[in-house]
Structure formats: structure tokens, C-alpha cells
């Protein structure tokens, strides 16, 4: 288990927990980043931040600081 902010490019992950109850975690969950969802890390912006992930068939960009509250696990054998 690790934070989404620490994930590397190309990682296939599954969300375990979205912690915090501020504006950021609310928005992240509304955008579909809820426990159980599969996430692929695509790339980082030129200056290292923000970074781009793919979930539920669409692409989302977020800053590493915003991803720090999202706990992920390496994707197991489940279909994405």
C-alpha cells in the first residue's frame, strides 16, 4: 500500500481509501476516485507536477499534494 502521490508512471493501481474530509477529497471522490476503482498513472507534467491518471475510462489531472490522501494498492489479478 502507498499513497497515490508516490506512484510511478505506468503503475496500475487500485484505490483502497480516500482519507480526509476537505474540499479536495470530496472533489476527488465525486470525480470517481472511490475505493475499489482501478487507476493507471499516465504521465507527469514538464515540471514534475501535476500528473495525469486514467480511471473509469477518462483522464484526470491532479497535483501530487492532492493525491497524498489517496491510498492505493498495486493492481492484483482483477480485471481493470
Amino acid at each position: 500500500m502507498m499513497k497515490l502521490s508516490e506512484a510511478g508512471i505506468g503503475d496500475h493501481l487500485r484505490v483502497v481509501e480516500v482519507s480526509g474530509n476537505g474540499r479536495v477529497s470530496k472533489r476527488l471522490t465525486e470525480m470517481g476516485l472511490v475505493p475499489g476503482v482501478a487507476v493507471l498513472v499516465i504521465r507527469a507534467a514538464p515540471f514534475g507536477d501535476p500528473f495525469q491518471i486514467r480511471l473509469r475510462g477518462y483522464d484526470l489531472a491532479l497535483r501530487r499534494s492532492e493525491a497524498a490522501g489517496v491510498i492505493v494498492d498495486a493492481e492484483g489479478g482483477n480485471e481493470a
Binding site: 476527488l28 489531472a61 491532479l62
Partner: peptide, 9 residues
Amino acid sequence: PPFIMEMPS
């Protein structure tokens, strides 16, 4: 402000 932004197709 949060950046959280959709990258639309």
C-alpha cells in the same frame, strides 16, 4: 486552489 481537472478527449 485544487487543480483536480478533467483532461477531456
